[in-house]
Write a protein that binds this DNA or RNA. Structure first.
Lengths: 199, 199
DNA sequence: CCGCGGGCAGTCAGGGTTGACCGTTCGTGC
DNA sequence: GCACGAACGGTCAACCCTGACTGCCCGCGG
């Protein structure tokens, strides 16, 4: 019989609950991520959930940190799988890869939290510093994806900002669009822009 | 004593309630835009609200259409007030003017509805066609803002897309940022891009 | 080996929301 | 003019969510 130390149980419980919280955010939105919904999806008792996260707010703030880790792990994975020699082809792959990140569940969970933070002071205060850290990490991840050659280009920083913000702006539309995001017409624009700005 | 016809009363009631609904969306978010909150803000009775909008959903879908009209009226106003001779200065003004639209209340109300639509089938179905109409109208408004000279430029359509999407992407960040949006560092990037693409 | 406290189960009251459902007034088409 | 139905005012039951609270188990430090 495997004995599980107290700290192990704690970590497992928290991860179990946070995964469920992120899943609830994605499938049902911020309002749907009630403590009851999370507890049901995680398959834990009320006491267990409330023991680890005394309030709904603490739970969702913790979920924010948690999904950031997922997001960055995702990005890191993607960064590895990319080695294309042809420069033009490489640009296209980089754009597609970046765009793909905006269609993952963590992005939508993050959207829910950003949106909720607008009208929730406490959540906002908890999220703001976290987001600053995230943005740094995301930029670093982007740099790894594009590679040293592109990063060295003088116009790369501007390109990175434009792509990142434009993609986010386009991604929002997919909250009410049913078309597949992978065929978005903006892909061509982004690729052209990247080709052009990287010379 | 002014007698108010039935249709007048109807129109007034609907406008009164919808304005309150948009205000609720902006200040308290989708979840906070409860029928009770809207009815309180509008200063109407429960019966009056439920008479015009039998369900919360119908109310908020109607609010979506309503805020679009506000948004476009806003844009039309702005378009008029712009006549600058110097082309470089004009580009800067156009960018700033476009950006300013993303900081108005209707934008945030729209964000709330987009976000809610992601996990609400009915709202989504009601919003999708509306949004397509909106995007057309917004593009037309943008064309009026930029003026015939800029619109004639071969790269204008791409510029318009990039600016529109990038601005939306940046605007989201202000749901949890406290800095004034008018000083956003991306303004410089957008202006450079516009200057460059318009020759 | 013992008792403290972390980890957890289950219940409950309080507050808030929705939409149904009464009743009443009065504009309007016939 | 007259009856029909739109335009309300006001109440209510059913539902859901949150967090407090009580009580139990058991790992672990002393």
């Amino acid at each position: 019989m495997e004995t599980r130390s107290r700290s192990e149980r704690t970590a497992d419980s928290r991860a179990l609950i946070l995964d469920a919280a992120v899943a609830c955010l994605v499938s049902d939105g911020y309002a749907g991520a009630s403590t009851l919904a999370v507890q049901a999806r995680a398959g834990v008792s009320r006491g267990r959930l409330l023991h680890h996260f005394p309030s709904r707010e603490e739970l969702l703030v913790a979920a924010a940190s948690h999904l950031v880790n997922e997001m960055l792990a995702e990005a890191a994975d993607q960064a590895e799988q990319l080695d294309v020699a042809d420069p033009v082809e490489r640009v296209e792959r980089c754009v597609e890869l970046n765009w793909a990140l905006f269609q993952k569940p963590p992005f939508w969970a993050a959207m829910e939290l950003w949106n909720a933070a607008r009208t929730d002071r406490a959540l906002r205060a908890a999220l703001a510093p976290e987001e600053r850290r995230i943005n740094q990490a995301i930029r670093a991840a982007a740099d790894r994806i594009w590679g040293p050659a592109a990063v060295a280009s003088p116009r790369y920083p501007v390109l990175r900002e434009l792509l990142f913000t434009s993609m986010r702006g386009v991604a929002i539309a997919y909250s009410f669009e049913d078309r597949p995001a992978a065929t978005d017409p903006h892909l061509a624009i982004w690729k052209d822009l990247a080709r052009q700005m990287l010379g």
